[in-house]
Design a protein around this nucleic acid. Structure first.
Length: 225
DNA sequence: GACCAGGCACATC
DNA sequence: GATGTGCATGGT
């Protein structure tokens, strides 16, 4: 086992001890996970929850209903999630893609081979790498690691990566140094977010962080990405 | 009032 | 290819 693999597993174990299994994604249906993945772009999850609650209360959290919605109504309903005009378009693009290319069968869409599915998701305007991987991992159960701001910051602070690492490089680092296990990828990403929210802010305050014992520099990750 | 939050596309150089 | 900018709400 490489040093990187060992450090990563040590990180995971430390986080797991602190937070327990996190049972992500918070969402009852596949469509809810997909919608949540788009709404949470650069946005606090509590704001996303309000938007999801609006859609749910209106009975719109399903593919046919979303497909039939007026853009302005959709934007108004997701307003609490921020960037609501942009995100309404992105949701529409995603929904349209599933309707037009897969006959509205989200399960069949997500059942596609991993590489093809990722390619298709990335071809949709508004679906970038993180959103694509979130949808694939959490809605599709695919074995793909989700890299986000917290992942970057934590790995940077613990010197497993440098500032010139881009999304794909970080994803490759994680996937090649961890057992290929969708359940592990699922929970590990959730652990990264929990660590990040609680201990790994841009202005470094690592006190009490479960990863504190691992060699790191608390001052890295500020103004570096 | 400043900072932050589970990005992404597009314009410009 | 790298860098800058717009998009926006809500909690701390």
């Amino acid at each position: 086992m490489s040093q990187t693999s060992q450090t990563l597993m040590e990180m995971y174990q430390a986080a797991l001890t602190r937070f327990g299994h996190l049972k992500w994604w918070p969402g009852e249906t596949r469509i809810e996970i997909c919608v949540g993945a788009i709404l949470t772009q650069n946005t606090n999850w509590t704001n996303v929850e309000k938007a999801l609650a609006n859609l749910k209360a209106a009975g719109k959290l399903n593919l046919p209903a979303l497909a039939a919605m007026d853009m302005n109504d959709l934007a108004e309903m997701i307003r609490p999630a921020g960037y609501f005009n942009v995100k309404a378009k992105r949701l529409r693009n995603f929904i349209r893609h599933v309707m037009e290319h897969h006959g509205g069968d989200l399960d069949a869409f997500l059942a596609m081979a991993t590489s093809t599915l990722r390619e298709e998701l990335l071809s949709i305007n508004g679906i970038g790498r993180e959103t694509a991987d979130s949808i694939m991992l959490y809605a599709g159960g695919k074995c793909t690691f989700v890299v986000d701001t917290y992942t970057f910051r934590i790995l940077l602070r613990h010197r497993l990566i440098d500032t010139d690492y881009d999304y794909e490089m970080i994803k490759e680092l994680l996937e090649s140094n961890l057992p290929s296990d969708a359940e592990l990828f699922n929970d590990f990403h959730a652990q990264f977010v929990s660590i990040g929210k609680s201990y790994c802010k841009p202005v470094a305050r690592c006190e009490g962080c479960p990863l504190e014992h691992l060699p790191h520099d608390p001052n890295r990750g500020r103004d570096e990405f």
